[in-house]
């Protein structure tokens, strides 16, 4: 009876957004008379960080500091239409809508600044710190605040913008499945190192090592949140979670968190992550969306590592100690496979 180390990997890609009925999002951006901006949406922040992602995209596009932008979302009386927060569509779809709205607002702002500075708007640029200056001549400048005051009280301009981003429906061919499901994909590869106890069937994940490609990381700390938390959920799906442990038998439905088991703070493992950014050609600053794909490589990587450790394939999830133990017994004992690929 022993504990066996195993290592497995998996690689995946993930479609960003959905192909159903057309996939639109809208955004509105406007400035108050002090040059402070509000982004108005109907997107949902369920923890993934929709408010902050769109805030950074708006600030970048407008060319103003992050502190000068706030996002107000999900009031159906004021927020324009959005499909919803699902299908990893938020950063890409809503982000693009916000970028479009911010671009329109920026256009008005630059026109107003040009009028104040008596130059051509095309010759102006923002410095990201709240000022607009003539390109190549930083001293010929005006603050965004002064521009907003001028626009509101002297020029009669609304520094505001509307944006919509739509991926139109691509009809699916009934015979071949031909379609344009999405416009870009995120990618990942993950290695799981774990230990299998051949006496109890228990699997302990020791370490995860991964590379995720997710387009431009709009906010690296929030990317880290998604990847760390998402991989935890993947590990949970691989080894712990099920409301129907003997599916299709419906018995044993869980009623609380004592019966629906997930890895707790004592069950986690280190996760060493590399992030690659291949910008999506049609994403906001190249952004795609890491929210869903982060969990996916963990499930097969864990299953493959279990095979590597003890030589059994458990092809039904979750891979509970009971299943591992039954498989080891059926095989007549653990059969460690050695280094993966047989070459190390």
């Amino acid at each position: 009876m022993a504990r066996h180390r195993g290592r497995g990997m998996a690689a995946i890609n993930y479609p960003i957004g959905m192909n159903l009925g057309g996939d639109p999002s809208q955004a509105l951006v406007h400035s108050n008379p002090e040059g402070k901006f509000t982004v108005t949406l109907s997107a949902i922040d369920l923890g993934q960080g929709m408010k902050q992602v769109t805030r950074q995209i708006a600030a970048e596009t407008l060319g103003v500091p992050i502190a000068d932008v706030y996002v107000d979302t999900a009031d159906s009386d004021t927020g324009p239409h959005d499909m919803g927060s699902f299908a990893s569509r938020g950063t890409h779809r809503v982000g693009n809508a916000v970028a479009a709205a911010a671009k329109e607002a920026r256009g008005v702002m630059m026109e107003a600044a040009a009028e104040e500075l008596e130059v051509n708007a095309a010759d102006l640029d923002t410095d990201g710190r709240g000022n607009i200056h003539v390109k190549g001549a930083p001293s010929r400048a005006i603050s965004v605040k002064d521009v907003a005051v001028a626009a509101q009280f002297r020029q009669g301009k609304t520094i505001a913008g509307r944006g919509i981003f739509l991926i139109p429906l691509s009809e699916v061919n009934p015979e071949t499945g031909e379609m344009s499901p999405v416009s870009c994909y995120a990618h990942a590869c993950l290695v799981a190192d774990l230990e299998v106890d051949d006496e109890t069937g228990e699997v302990t994940v020791l370490k995860m090592t991964s590379a995720y490609e997710l387009g431009r990381a709009i906010n690296p700390k929030m990317v880290e949140q998604q990847l760390v938390g998402g991989a935890w959920m993947g590990m949970s799906h691989a080894l712990f979670e099920t409301p129907e442990p003997y599916y299709p038998d419906t018995a044993h439905g869980p009623r609380d968190f004592n019966e629906y088991v997930m890895p707790g703070p004592g069950d986690i493992c280190p996760h060493d992550i590399a992030v690659l950014e291949r910008p999506a050609p049609d994403g906001p600053f190249g952004g795609k969306g890491p929210g869903e794909m982060c969990a996916n490589p963990v499930l097969p990587a864990v299953a493959n590592a279990i095979f590597n450790a003890v030589g059994v394939r458990v092809d039904s999830l979750p891979i509970t100690p009971e299943k591992v133990l039954r498989a080891i017994k059926a095989q007549g004992g653990a059969r460690p496979q050695g280094a993966p690929g047989g070459r190390r």
Partner: peptide
């Protein structure tokens, strides 16, 4: 632990941005 591997696809990105790519605090935190 998280690291960015900026050397990949660097020709496809302009990394000179003010807000995008910055680890700003969440608006809701």
């Amino acid at each position: 632990m998280l690291e960015f591997r900026k050397e990949y696809f660097k020709d496809e990105r302009d990394d000179r941005l003010n807000e995008v790519g910055q680890p700003r605090q969440r608006q809701d935190m």
